[in-house]
């Protein structure tokens, strides 16, 4: 990217960005496409077309995780032990208080269910805020995610992952075992595979139909961000000096080499986000560079120039028209790719 001038980045012509002053823990579009940036200092900044971006104080301490809430608005967990909802108008409502414990991870599904990882438990809550169940794990969860239908929640932890049916009468997980500590977790869009990122650093996957193990290794650093492309053909991952994509077709990823895109700058990829319709992947790097790359052609479009701080948050809106990003140093923005 060295030869690219500032003006060549989409941010200059089609974007907006600001210094928000704290680590961007999440760039989150709510279900209606409203954009907010959740910062590690406990605040949530909502994008506004005109004037300042309104700030909601979601947590007294640090904010650890944020996602789109089930219906609208945002959901966040903090080191103050609180699970909080921020409404589209910025109103903050406490959904639960697990005082003394950190709310490390949050997830929600439009089917009307929320999940929060607190200590070694994952609490499942309804949209009205009622606690539905508490799922116990052998160690603290490293990540949680719902499947595409919101029927199952997958939880990564030490020595594997647990798969729970949210609506089950009896809570007994399907244990996906693999020795070691598992963090970030992703469900394939069709719900047939679960993949985790490990401490080692490598990935581990399970084909749910027959429990087939999949080992994906070779990363120089830990993968923190992983996402399947829209139809689940590719798994895009951070943790290398390029965007590493594993093929989930034609018998892969077992025995197949991954495809590497947008490499060559000797900077680690720190975040990935897959376009909701096309086989296009957005990637953020350790120096703040944001780009978009097309899997088939490998073509790269620069989005935001490097500013020195790693990209810590990256997200597409549901239409695939806007791409939002944020860095560890608190620089956050988005580009609008829709036809003009």
């Amino acid at each position: 990217m060295a030869a690219v001038s500032e003006a060549d980045f989409l941010l200059a012509s089609r974007g907006v960005a600001k210094e928000l002053g704290a680590w961007v823990a999440g760039a989150v579009f709510d279900r209606a496409g409203r954009l907010a940036f959740a910062l590690a200092d406990g605040t949530l900044h909502r994008h506004a077309e005109e004037g300042d971006w309104p700030v909601a104080v979601a947590h007294e301490g640090g904010l650890l995780s944020a996602c789109a809430d089930a219906k609208d608005g945002w959901l966040s967990g903090g080191d103050d032990g609180r699970l909080v909802r921020v409404a589209p108008d910025g109103m903050v409502t406490q959904i639960a208080d697990y005082r003394g414990k950190w709310v490390d991870h949050v997830a929600a599904h439009e089917a009307g269910v929320r999940a929060a990882a607190v200590g070694k438990a994952v609490h499942v809550l309804g949209v009205a805020g009622a606690a539905l169940k508490s799922l116990a794990h052998p160690s603290s969860p490293g990540g949680i995610c719902f499947d595409a239908k919101g029927k199952r929640v997958a939880v990564s932890h030490y020595n594997g992952a647990s798969l729970w049916f949210v609506g089950a009468k009896e809570d007994k997980p399907r244990l996906l075992e693999w020795k070691g500590s598992h963090h970030a977790i992703a469900f394939s869009p069709d719900g047939t595979h679960v993949v985790t990122a490990m401490q080692e650093p490598s990935l581990h996957g399970w084909r749910l139909a027959d429990g087939q193990h999949m080992r994906m290794s070779g990363y120089p650093t830990k993968t923190k961000s992983l996402a399947f492309t829209a139809r689940g053909r590719w798994l895009a991952t951070s943790g290398a000096e390029s965007v590493v994509l594993w093929p989930f077709f034609g018998g892969g990823p077992m025995g197949k080499a991954p495809t590497e895109l947008a490499g060559g700058d000797e900077v680690m990829c720190s975040a990935v986000a897959c376009h909701p319709q096309h086989e296009v992947v957005a990637a953020g790097f350790g120096d703040g560079l944001v780009l978009i790359t097309e899997v088939a052609s490998g073509k790269v479009v620069p989005v935001a120039p490097p500013r020195g701080s790693a990209v810590s948050a990256l997200a597409w809106d549901a239409a695939g028209a806007r791409l939002a990003f944020g860095t560890e140093a608190g620089f956050a923005g988005f580009v609008d790719l829709s036809r003009r």
Partner: peptide, 18 residues
Amino acid sequence: VRGDLIRIIGGLMRRKGR
């Protein structure tokens, strides 16, 4: 290693200066 420390330090380091 202490898994809890890796997790906690990861969280704390997002708010350096505190």
